[in-house]
């Protein structure tokens, strides 16, 4: 019994079969990577998991309850957080205000009319936000406007915003896309540290094999919308089917 169970999911965009009979079982506490060449359906699968897309057929169970038909904010309230390929943060707000919002969302749910309360009196929320900022080494940047952060810091902030909600499942969509090697390694360290300290289940979509093999405990290879193999990193390395999917017939 995994924390996330995807069974027989199909999704068709016009004539294109984006996902065909996808089955996925993510064990609790693991880091599960989904890899595959461009157009393999990785992002479509992720969008199904967060409620942005509804599959034509199939089921998606999170902790035993179906998430199909739920809106993204409802799925987040169940405990699934998502990190985007390009960091999605509140760029006009300060770093600290960015941290406050997920704290309020976690405590108060999807809507609360707290129009006449002052932020200064929310001691527990402020403490939580400050604590998380310190944990990702951004305490000194709290007054900066988020849009003026470096790309690496934006990524850090986005992850901190997800983590402060203590999600049960963290979805990462190419977390190191477009990063320099040093930033990539920092991100790998950060993710490993997060996983070790909190035992959060993670699902990572990634192109960079270096990142995948440094993080994942389990890997699913997707090609043309269908899972080819699912195995441990060691077995995936050098698997003939994987080579074939990535490099074409000739290489196999």
């Amino acid at each position: 019994m995994g924390i996330l169970e995807v069974s027989n999911v199909n999704k068709r965009f016009g004539g294109l079969q984006a996902l065909g009979n996808v089955n996925l079982d993510v064990a609790k506490g693991t880091v599960h990577a989904i890899i595959g060449p461009n157009g393999a359906g990785k992002s479509t699968l992720l969008n199904v998991l967060v409620g942005k897309l509804v599959p034509d057929t199939g089921t998606v169970l999170f902790n035993g309850t179906s998430v199909l038909g739920l809106k993204p904010f409802e799925i987040n309230q169940l405990g699934i957080s998502r990190v985007f390929q390009t960091p999605e943060i509140f760029s006009d707000l300060s770093v600290f205000e960015n941290m406050l919002i997920p704290c309020f969302a976690k405590r108060d749910g999807s809507f609360r009319m707290h129009a006449l309360e002052s932020i200064a009196s929310e001691k527990d929320i402020i403490e939580k936000a400050e604590h998380m900022l310190a944990e990702v080494n951004m305490a000194d940047k709290r007054h900066m406007t988020a849009s003026s952060l470096s790309r690496g810091d934006k990524r850090r902030l986005e992850m901190a915003m997800c983590l402060v909600q203590e999600p049960k499942l963290l979805l990462l969509d190419e977390p190191t896309a477009g990063m320099a090697r040093a930033d990539t390694n920092n991100t790998i360290d950060l993710l490993n540290q997060i996983h070790d300290s909190r035992e959060i289940t993670m699902v990572i979509i990634e192109h960079d094999m270096h990142v995948v093999f440094s993080l994942a405990k389990r890997i699913t290879v997707l090609a043309q919308g269908t899972p080819l193999v699912e195995d441990t990193p060691d077995n995936i390395k050098g698997h003939p089917k994987v080579k074939e999917a990535y490099l074409g017939e000739a290489a196999a």
């Binding site: 967060v50 904010f73 957080s81 707000l93 969302a105 999807s110 915003m161 909600q165």
Partner: peptide, 13 residues
């Protein structure tokens, strides 16, 4: 005003 996508994925309606 800044980012409705992040708003949604932070569990806020």
């Amino acid at each position: 005003k800044t980012n409705q996508t992040r708003m949604n994925y932070t569990g806020l309606n």
